[in-house]
């Protein structure tokens, strides 16, 4: 819409999809799934509740993330925080850590 590139973000674990604009934070877009279980924390890379792994696709960082929550080894394994990551292509995401439990628990499959 409005000529802004938009990417499709898939979450294989729940079968859900949402769209995320180029350079829009994944967490901000994920909120538009409009359901409970998306623990929006500090939104600024500090608290670590929105930890995800990028399974497929390419992303860019939108700001610093806390090393207390994502180690260098994890970062090398494509683990990051959804509040500080934007897609540059279609993606597949895995929800990790504290977010995973509430995210899967609140997923209402038809």
């Amino acid at each position: 819409m409005f000529g802004i590139p938009t990417h499709s973000i898939a979450i294989p674990a729940t079968g859900e999809h949402f769209s995320c604009k180029d350079h829009e934070a994944l967490l901000a877009a994920m909120v538009k799934l409009g359901r409970r279980g998306i623990p929006v924390g500090c939104l600024n890379g500090g608290c670590g509740v929105c930890k995800v792994r990028v399974l497929k696709g390419s992303v860019v960082a939108t700001g610093p993330i806390s090393r207390a929550h994502v180690s260098q080894e994890e970062a090398d394994a494509n683990i990051t925080l959804a509040c500080r990551t934007a897609p540059t292509s279609d993606l597949e995401l895995e929800i990790l850590g504290k977010m995973k439990k509430s995210f899967l628990a609140q997923c209402s499959k038809p």
Binding site: P39, G41, V49, S66
Partner: peptide, 9 residues
Amino acid sequence: SGSFTTAYT
């Protein structure tokens, strides 16, 4: 409220 008790640094 939200992540009041889970989100902290």
